[in-house]
Amino acid sequence: MKPEDLLYAETHEWVHVGDDDVATIGISAFALEQLTDLVFMELPSVGDMATAGEAFGEVESVKAVSNLYSPVDGEIIDANTEIVDNLESLGDDPYGAGWIIKVKLSSRDALDKLMDHAAYEKQCAEEA
């Protein structure tokens, strides 16, 4: 997936919505660059419900545990458990092999609050 084609949450998660209303979610390259020495990740179970703006997982980097926030509402239908054992490779392909969860959307409402790539780039420039 190309970063230009994705939607982004203020909290730095990216979203790709397929024709089947399945949203693939990951962490942006900008956020991953700042997450040095990622040592642990906890993912939700398949079947759990994701709620926009609420935590769906957690990561630990340099003794800091951070929440991962869902940008969408729906049922979690897949979680990338392979990445949990290969966290060092997460930054190699954040928009491809580094996806984290897939969510079957129960509503598209939350998508309206997400940013396109240009707006997200602007946010990153302000935060850098």
Partner: peptide
Amino acid sequence: ATGGGAIVHDRELTYSLCVPSRSRWAD
């Protein structure tokens, strides 16, 4: 709720500091 290793809290002083942050990824 925080990361790192185990601590035996006994003859010590613990501090906690809670501050707002513009982003949880910020340097």
